[in-house]
């Protein structure tokens, strides 16, 4: 029960410049801290996350995660080798897999070897996020809150060195939001995290620091 924690806590130093989307953001996140990115719609918050996750190559900029360079002028590590976890408002669980298999999906990267070990670790994680009893359910048989809990377990179980959260609570029913927020606060403790959110409550509950991205110039 050690391998999957190994990645926790590495500092991030990044600068993302995407002129066509009016994005020019520079910030650092200390090891184990959570940085909230806030700002109006269209300010490019999600663009920053895409660049860090490896889905969009910024025109210029760089990202340094611990001693690794995720990207700069010369370097581009593809998404699957970044060890960066990405959670969106849509849990994006694999609909054909059970909750347990969804969580187990990323365990290979976390270094968990053997089918039985993966099952045990996946169950353990499902228990930690409060859906231990749903291990054999498929996403279609879960509520929105249950699915998002499973998605949180899946992304953290894969042992990311950096966690990216893109409005993780905004698609949930209002009555489950406080519980999931509480869960996130608990499981993200000690993990380097970038959180994009609209909600002040999220910033207060989850972030150690915040960066506000200004609105883009009114061009288009």
């Amino acid at each position: 029960m050690t391998g999957w924690r190994a990645g926790a806590g590495t500092a991030l130093d990044c600068s993302v410049v995407v002129p066509e989307r009016g994005v020019d953001v520079t910030f650092t996140v200390d090891e184990g801290q959570t940085m909230a990115l806030t700002g109006p719609n269209g300010s490019g918050k999600s663009t920053v996350l895409s660049a860090l996750a490896g889905w969009l190559r910024p025109e210029t900029g760089h990202a340094q995660l611990g001693d690794r360079t995720l990207f700069d002028e010369h370097t581009w590590i593809p998404a699957r080798r970044r060890n960066v976890g990405y959670l969106t408002q849509d849990p994006l669980l694999f609909p054909h897999l059970t909750a347990e298999a969804n969580v187990a999906f990323g365990l290979a990267r976390a270094g968990v070897v053997g089918r039985r070990n993966r099952r045990d670790v996946a169950r353990d994680w499902l228990g930690r996020v409060g859906v231990g009893q749903l291990a054999s359910r498929r996403p279609g048989e879960m509520s929105g809150g249950q699915a998002q809990r499973t998605a949180i377990a899946r992304v953290l179980a894969s042992g990311p060195e950096l966690v990216l959260l893109d409005e993780p609570l905004s698609a949930l029913d209002a009555q489950v939001v406080p519980q999931i927020r509480e869960l996130l606060a608990e499981v993200l403790t000690g993990r380097t995290t970038v959180l994009v959110t609209h909600h002040e409550a999220d910033v207060v509950a989850l972030a150690d620091a915040a960066t506000t991205i200004p609105a883009p110039p009114p061009s288009a």
Binding site: R80, G85, Y86, T88, D90, F94, P95, H96, A108, R154
Partner: peptide, 27 residues
């Protein structure tokens, strides 16, 4: 492609992503 991206972000290889995510979702 969102599910495939999720799989790649979880460290899966392109082949594994194709076999375990793309194909089943295509069924």
């Amino acid at each position: 492609e969102a599910h495939e991206r999720t799989a790649l972000s979880l460290g899966a290889s392109p082949l594994r992503t194709f076999l375990t995510v793309t194909l089943p979702l295509l069924v």
